[in-house]
Design a protein around this nucleic acid. Structure first.
Length: 259
DNA sequence: ATGACAATCAGAGATTGA
């Protein structure tokens, strides 16, 4: 079973590029971030016609997440628990009912810039809630994964030029510490379980020719419970589509599971 | 040091992103 995560940076702007990629890669499940529309504005028919079940957690103009799945989805939950006042659409989870049921969580973690400030405080608070959700997923001792745009550069090798990110909300020590606190609960970074070394990126800025200079960062991740990591066969980044017409600034990352 | 680029909503330019 192939499960992908893809920050599409606006469903309206990606109305051709996303279906094209789905046809080529044919993931069983796609977790989408930054759909940038309300639920009613999401063109679900396009994806239903391709054989996907569609679950959306949208918001006007910004944020917004969705799950596309060729397998049935059960127990859909919207919103990351832990703050009733948080109205950002950044989290959706559901159980994919296949041979082995898998709990999949799609997330769009706050960017956090500028530092310091309320946006950075929100990022750290959101990551604390993520920690608690991860703890509960691990306690269930079942196959589960959390995937999406984490807005975290985990290690220097995950950036072409780590020096210029040193004090950025995506890389500064306090952010990476919050990331490690979640991972160290016992989760597996699927990409790093399969691939090593530098030059693996999932985001290139639109500005200053970042793609042509390969000035990228790896910020889109899969974290897996041990029961899910046991099923991991492969994990790759579809970097090539960043060079196509009207691309998102992120590219898809996918896993292949023995399930 | 700054801006560069793109998307959204709106119908210009501010806001957001990373």
């Amino acid at each position: 079973m192939k499960i992908a995560t893809f920050n599409i940076n606006g469903i309206k702007a990606r109305i051709n590029a996303l279906p094209d990629w789905l046809c080529e890669r044919a993931p069983d499940v796609a977790l989408l971030q930054e759909i940038k529309t309300v639920d009613e504005g999401f063109p679900r028919e396009i994806f239903e016609d391709m054989g996907y079940n569609v679950e959306v957690h949208g918001q006007k103009s910004f944020n917004g997440v969705a799950i596309l799945s060729k397998l049935p989805l059960e127990d859909v939950q919207r919103g990351l628990p832990g703050d009733e006042d948080d109205d950002h659409a950044r989290w959706i989870e559901a159980t994919v009912v296949g041979e082995k049921p898998i709990r999949v969580c799609g997330l769009y973690l706050p960017n956090g810039n500028p530092v310091p400030g309320p946006k950075y405080d929100y990022k750290l608070a959101w990551m604390d809630r993520l920690y608690h959700r991860a703890k509960d997923l691990l306690a269930a001792e079942e196959p589960a994964l959390m995937a999406g745009d984490y807005n975290i550069i985990p290690q220097p090798e995950d950036a072409a030029h780590p020096d210029k990110w040193r004090e950025d909300a995506l890389f500064r020590l306090e952010s990476r510490t919050a990331w490690r606190r979640v991972v160290n609960l016992g989760l597996t970074d699927a990409f790093r379980a399969i691939n090593q070394g530098p030059d693996h990126y999932s985001f290139w800025d639109y500005q200053a020719g970042a793609w042509n200079k390969n000035d990228g960062i790896r910020i889109d991740h899969f974290l897996m419970t041990p029961q899910c990591a046991d099923l991991l066969l492969d994990c790759q980044i579809d970097a090539e589509i960043r060079g196509r017409e009207k691309p998102s600034d992120h590219v898809p990352v996918w896993v292949d599971l023995a399930a």
